[in-house]
């Protein structure tokens, strides 16, 4: 399938399957665009380039969700160093200790169910646990 025939989400997902966190860049606006779409919201241009993130970011905000059943879990908003933000979760770290400002690194989550479920990006503390994983 040609790239032009692929949806923005389909392209994003393809990169994820290769272990890459992709985002769009608008040359006309000179800034990243996320979530991926067919038009740049800053200029109206349909010229959007795909770029691959280095996968490093900072937790912009974090919440611990307490479900009525099951363990509490983290939901974070992560600001990637390239200048785009996405929702994700920080893994490999106690949910209630994930804090704003924490430096994190991208990892791809591959669902155990195979192709029935899509991959998605998660994050792990960027530095070793001994220094607290904080920036």
């Amino acid at each position: 399938m040609s790239a032009a025939a692929m949806s923005p989400y389909g392209t994003y997902l393809d990169y994820l399957k290769q272990g890459k966190l992709a985002y769009q860049f608008s040359p006309d606006a000179g800034r990243p665009v996320f979530f991926p779409r067919v038009v740049c919201p800053y200029t109206g241009s349909t010229r959007l380039e795909w770029r691959v993130s280095k996968g490093l970011g900072t937790v912009y905000s974090a919440s611990t969700v307490f479900p009525r059943k099951g363990e509490p879990y983290n939901v974070s908003l992560v600001d990637c160093d390239e200048g785009f933000r996405l929702m994700s979760r920080v893994e490999g770290w106690p949910a209630e200790d994930v804090c704003i400002g924490m430096r994190v690194r991208f990892a791809v989550h591959v669902p155990p169910g195979g192709d029935d479920e899509d991959c998605y990006p998660v994050f792990v503390p960027a530095s070793s646990p001994t220094d607290g994983g904080r920036a």
Binding site: A62, S63, V65, V75, M87, Y120
Partner: peptide
Amino acid sequence: PFRPFLPPTAYALAAAR
């Protein structure tokens, strides 16, 4: 995929920030 409990989690993120 991240199971935010919406709407409360969205407002919780704003409150935390």
